[in-house]
């Protein structure tokens, strides 16, 4: 999938992989790749500033901790983050069903529903 197409949805995708528990930066990148079956092709470097942006907006809280012998910044979904995720899911499902309805090839002429 083109990086440009992903960019606008990156925040929602990040919130979604944090739904089942806190993760650090690289684990978030791995989870994004695993869930997309490797189809999500975006520069991994853009995930880190997105985490800061989400933290500034109060949707994530980040803190340093030692995981596997390495100091890592771990991110947890906040209550505001859960709300934002739910809102984004609703928006996406509305958007995708509208686009899907318009893009669907028209039925053959003469066919009625």
């Amino acid at each position: 999938m083109r990086p440009d197409a992903v960019r606008g949805h990156l925040d929602g995708l990040i919130l979604s992989v944090l739904e089942d528990g806190p993760r650090h930066g690289y684990a978030i990148i791995e989870a994004l790749q695993a869930r997309s079956g490797g189809a999500l092709d975006l520069p991994t470097g853009t995930v880190y500033p997105a985490l800061r942006r989400l933290e500034r907006a109060g949707r994530l809280s980040g803190s340093w901790s030692t995981v596997g012998g390495r100091e890592r910044r771990t991110y947890t979904l906040t209550r505001a983050g859960r709300h934002a995720l739910a809102a984004q899911r609703a928006d996406w499902s509305e958007f995708s069903s509208v686009v899907e309805a318009v893009l669907r090839p028209p039925r053959a002429a003469g066919e009625t529903s």
Partner: peptide, 22 residues
């Protein structure tokens, strides 16, 4: 995989400016 530094640095710079502005 990480991508060009300039792109990531620009995104980070937005956050640095936002934090200092706040």
């Amino acid at each position: 995989d990480f991508g060009p530094v300039a792109e990531v640095a620009d995104l980070y710079q937005d956050e640095l400016a936002a934090g200092q502005g706040r």
